[in-house]
Design a protein around this nucleic acid. Structure first.
Lengths: 221, 221
DNA sequence: GATTTCCTTACGGTTAACCGCAACGGTAGA
DNA sequence: TCTACCGTTGCGGTTAACCGTAAGGAAATC
């Protein structure tokens, strides 16, 4: 089993719950932090001391407070760590359960497990730690279909940007000008209309208002 | 100190964290549940057995799953309990920290404390239990200004319904008919236009699309 | 090299949203 | 009682969104 594990979650209640899980697995050295920056520093220090952490269990969302932070989210932390220390195993433990988001993390950052905080989250986390220790990936049962569905795959970065601009209150005409200026293609008003029409059909929406609402529900924007 | 306490939170990690707090206060009989319906039944049973729970510590948001529930949220649970058993002390332990929401619970349900899940949530919860035991109210420091009513900007139920209908893809004309049918006043297209205009100004939105996006971000819908 | 296909763009017509103005009715205060 | 005020409703004009169609161009296919 892992010997040295780092737990990173801003909520103290959760941190204690996770610590309970690691202890039940007989992991000797477990450290808790409540800020992503602290997690980063602990991991760096572990490597310098030649006693590196083998596993990071981290939340995604961290409330900001008076302490200024370099890494303000679990994603930022995972991003830098997965690049600088690809040998570090990472388990995401989050309330997030939208398939698109889950897949995003596996595809972009090579995480080892994604466990959804839930009624059975602690048991799932225990399973996840075991699986990851054996070199396997782990996904909470409720999101196990997240990795192979291509239904959401059709959304491009362009569409996301379009939806973001809409949600920001821009008119289609303004977006057209914006895209022309940024040399984003296609940029004509007509193309933007057509693309939005496609998205409306895809997401079964009556109009742009509902479209943005649905996109927000799905975590696309 | 309290002798019999009920903890209600769907996340097992949190439940364990809260249990740790109650144990540290020397509370002998602590029960955990993960569904609001279970909380309601336990409390009813306690009264029937003439060994009632003195304190309920509950979350607000509960994920729904395969189990059909009568009470699907902490609010529904608190609503019924505060009416049927006003002698029961209630502490809300939630990630919610928006002043309007916090004040809403104090004004409508006579809760005894509102503790925000946070980095220091467990300590605050401990303080809250002590204060409530001494017959006082408790508020997490970060929301202590929530109770003074400064905000005339309060959103009415009517506005929320309007925004929901918009987000569901209804046109203003359709909403007008809908409201007429349900005898919701005002229902004229003109009034709906005017109300939406007011909301747009209030939330600094350019159009209905951005308005719905902002409302979703704020958790209004 | 010609044809097909896909994408971008343009344009006109229809519908819905947005905006200001004014009329109506209920209410509270003079 | 009169009047000022406020919220609701109706209406006309302007703007933006929506929708179908078609022209133009690039890449792909044959």
């Amino acid at each position: 089993m892992f010997k040295k594990v780092l737990i990173s979650d801003d909520l103290d209640s959760i941190n204690h719950g996770v610590q309970l899980v690691t202890e039940s697995l007989g992991i000797s050295e477990v450290t808790q932090v409540q800020y992503c920056d602290d997690a980063y520093l602990k991991i760096k220090k572990g490597i310098m001391d030649e006693a590196p952490y083998e596993l990071l269990i981290t939340d995604l969302s961290f409330k900001s407070d008076h302490r200024a932070q370099t890494y303000t989210s679990g994603e930022a932390l995972i991003k830098i760590l997965s690049r600088e220390h690809p040998e570090l195993r990472i388990i995401v433990y989050s309330i997030e359960d939208r398939p698109l988001k889950v897949r995003y993390f596996f595809e972009n950052y090579k995480i080892d497990a994604f466990v959804c905080k839930s009624r059975k989250g602690m048991n799932e986390l225990k399973d996840a730690i075991r699986q990851v220790y054996n070199g396997k990936l782990y996904l909470s049962p409720q999101i196990q279909n997240s990795l192979n569905k291509q239904s959401h795959l059709e959304i491009e970065e362009y569409d996301v940007e379009l939806l973001r601009q809409l949600a920001a209150g821009k008119s289609q005409d303004e977006i057209s000008h914006e895209f022309k200026q940024q040399a984003i293609s296609p940029s004509s008003l007509s193309s933007i209309e057509k693309r939005l029409n496609k998205l409306r059909i895809q997401f079964k929406s009556n109009n742009a208002i509902q479209l943005v609402a649905v996109a927000k529900d799905l975590g696309i924007i």
